[in-house]
Computed example of a mutant assay.
Amino acid sequence: MSHGAGTGENRLIEVVNITRVFNVGGEEVRALRGVSFGIRRGEWVAIIGQSGSGKTTLMNVLGCLDTPSSGNYILNGKDVARMNDDELALIRNKEIGFIFQTFQLLPRETALSNVELPLVYRGVAARERRERAKAALEKVQLGHRMHHRPNELSGGQRQRVAIARALVAEPSMLLADEPTGNLDSATGEEIVRLFEELHRAGHTLVLVTHEPKLAARCPRAVRLSDGEVVADGPGREVALTNLVIPSAQGAGGL
C-alpha cells in the first residue's frame, strides 16, 4: 500500500521521517519511528492504532501541540517541525480546527459564544464574529439551539457545537480526536454523517481513532503500530483487515 498519497501541489500535509523520543524515568521511549505520509487537500483520512501505537503522539504533532525529535512536518507549505511555541500557537489558530472527544465547551457560555471563541483570539470584530458563528452553527444543523448552554444540549448537539467551533475560523484542516467516543451508537452515526457532508463540501478531515468501524467509514486510513506506519490505503481495507500487530514495546499509550 502507498505511504505517499497526496503528492504534488495539492498536498496539504507532508510528514517526512518523523520520530518522537520521550525520556521516561531515564529511559528513551520511541513513540514514533520514522513516520512518513502525505494528505491532499479535501481528503478524509483516519489515523488508526491500538493503545501504545503512537497515534496520540502523531496527533499532537499534526496539531502542532508537540514537535518531533527529528524529521519534517510540512503543513500548508510551512515546515512547522522546528517552530517555537509562539509560532506553533499561531499555526494552530490559523490552520487547524480541533474536535475533541470531550467537546471542551465553556459551560457558562451559549453555543454561539463557544463557537465565536476562535475568532475572539483572532481579533475579529464582534458583529462579524457573531455572523460567522451563526453560519457555522447553521452548517451543523444547530442554528435553532445557538442560545442554549452546553448543559441544555444533548451529547450529539454538544459535539456539533464543537464541530462548528472548529469550522468557524476556516482552518486548513479539521483534526478530530475520537469524536464519537463519548456518544451512543445512534448519535455517533449522526456525527459520522456530518463528517461525510463536510468531506463532500471539500474540507480536509483527519480523524484519530482506535475504532475500526469508524476508520472504515473514511475513504483512507493510515494504521500505526509500535510507532510505525504498517498500512496506508482504503479505509475499509486498512481498518477491517486482521493484521498481526507487534507489541508496543513499552510505548505506554503515547
Rank of each mutant, 00 (worst) to 15 (best):
Q141P: 08
V192S: 05
G233V: 12
I191N: 06
V206S: 06
E190N: 15
E178R: 01
A169V: 03
A133K: 01
L175W: 03
S172H: 15
L205E: 08
L153C: 13
P212F: 09
A135P: 08
T110N: 11
T241W: 10
A133H: 03
R217E: 13
S154G: 01
S113M: 11
V140L: 08
R158Q: 00
E196Q: 15
H199Q: 05
L207S: 11
P179C: 06
E170L: 05
S113P: 08
I163K: 03
S172E: 14
A176F: 08
R122A: 09
E109N: 15
R129H: 04
M173Y: 12
L167N: 01
A133T: 00
H147S: 07
V238Y: 13
R132P: 05
T204Y: 00
L153I: 14
A239Y: 04
T110S: 13
L198N: 00
A162H: 00
L224I: 15
Q141R: 13
L214N: 11
R108Q: 15
R220D: 03
L174S: 04
E196A: 14
G181E: 04
L240I: 11
L243P: 02
Q159V: 09
L112S: 01
E131A: 15
R193N: 04
S247H: 13
Q157N: 01
E237G: 06
A169P: 09
Q159S: 12
K134W: 05
V124T: 01
R122M: 01
V229W: 03
E228A: 11
E211F: 04
T187F: 05
G250F: 12
R130K: 15
G202E: 02
A162W: 00
T204R: 04
G188Q: 13
V238A: 13
C218D: 13
N114R: 02
G250P: 10
Q157K: 00
T204A: 05
L207D: 09
A125E: 14
C218S: 13
K134I: 02
P219M: 11
A215W: 10
A125H: 13
V222P: 03
L205P: 06
S247L: 12
A201P: 01
A111D: 02
V208M: 12
A126H: 12
S154E: 05
S225W: 00
P234R: 05
E131S: 15
L175C: 03
R130Q: 12
P107D: 06
L194W: 14
E116T: 10
A216V: 05
E197P: 01
S172Q: 15
N114A: 00
E128N: 08
E178K: 04
N242H: 07
L214H: 11
A125P: 12
G233F: 08
K213E: 08
L207V: 14
E178D: 08
H210N: 05
K134L: 03
R165G: 02
H148L: 08
E138R: 09
R223P: 02
V168K: 03
S247W: 09
N242L: 09
N182C: 07
E189V: 12
V161T: 09
V229S: 03
V229M: 00
R160M: 13
R165V: 01
P246L: 05
M173R: 07
P246T: 06
T187K: 08
A248V: 10
A186M: 11
H199D: 04
L205D: 08
T180Q: 07
L194F: 15
V124C: 06
A125Y: 14
R122W: 04
V120I: 10
T180P: 04
P212T: 06
A248N: 14
T209D: 14
T241M: 08
K139Q: 09
V120Y: 02
A176K: 10
R165C: 01
